[in-house]
């Protein structure tokens, strides 16, 4: 438990909730990152002219590290996965989020916040395999 950071994790969570709230109440859109990215790639028969908000939201995400660094040193992203593991993981995340219509943000934050049963099932499913695969990866293989 030496890495336990309840306060900063809670504050970060509040900001994520604030962002999702702004997006739904001002723009009328769900802050589901995998869906936004897939729609940007024109994978969802997106009508033309509906992409501006997606580009701007992703731009905000992309630049957030630089903005953070203006105020404090950026916490490191320790990525221990090998290149081949990253490719397998990325393929699974990309394919899985499209098949399951969402990821941690769309189902885990927005869906659970609106008490969607679909999102609850999805969240339980990805948490379950997350725990199982992590166990296999770190304690069995």
């Amino acid at each position: 438990m030496e890495n336990f950071t309840p306060i900063s994790s809670l504050i970060g969570g509040l900001l994520i909730g604030l962002s999702a709230s702004i997006l739904i109440l001002f723009i009328g859109r769900i802050a589901g990152i995998s869906g936004i990215i897939a729609s940007l790639l024109q994978f969802k028969n997106t009508p033309k002219g509906h992409q501006t908000w997606r580009i701007l939201f992703i731009a905000g995400l992309l630049i957030s590290s630089q903005v953070y660094e203006m105020f404090a040193p950026l916490p490191a992203s320790e990525i221990s996965a090998s290149t081949s593991m990253l490719i397998i993981a990325g393929l699974l995340v990309g394919f899985g989020t499209q098949m399951g219509s969402g990821c941690t943000s769309g189902h885990g934050v927005c869906g659970l916040s609106r008490l969607s049963l679909r999102s609850l099932i999805a969240t339980l499913c990805f948490m379950f395999t997350g725990f199982v695969v992590c166990y296999l990866m770190l304690h069995v293989v």
Partner: peptide
């Protein structure tokens, strides 16, 4: 789909 995503995550 969600289970595949969790594995990749």
């Amino acid at each position: 789909g969600s289970m595949l995503f969790g594995a990749g995550w």
